[in-house]
Amino acid sequence: MKITNKPILLVEDDQVDTMTVKRALKEIHVTNPLVHFENGEEAVHYLRTPERDKPCIILLDLNMPIMNGIEFLQVVKHDDQLRRIPVVVLTTSEEQQDKVNSFNLGVAGYMAKPVDYRQFVEVMRSIDAYWTISEMP
């Protein structure tokens, strides 16, 4: 990541998936702190707490309890303080409707979680590479 001191926000309910992300980030030597919430509501609460650092990127699962990914996006992308934070959807869903809804809400990327861990590491590597190069406001 370009800015190394800012946290990466992971919104993910699955424990193994969370472990996978953590392990993959570690494997590709991303040093940013990882903030993890199990649903959208908790994440929104975190984002709206002023004293907390705003994350440099949000990795978002869609299928979650309480507040799912799409609902989370609807909140975040309508919030002037939060809408510029890039959101990359990391999901199992390959439903066209989910993709359409996500991009309608201005996501920066949409990644289907591969079953194979090695491939997942490569996905994470690509995300890191991209957001290392990309300028941010």
Partner: peptide, 11 residues
């Protein structure tokens, strides 16, 4: 999701 977890854990 669990399949993926199995895959990851096995790896």
């Amino acid at each position: 999701a669990p399949l993926r977890a199995i895959g990851a854990l096995a790896d």
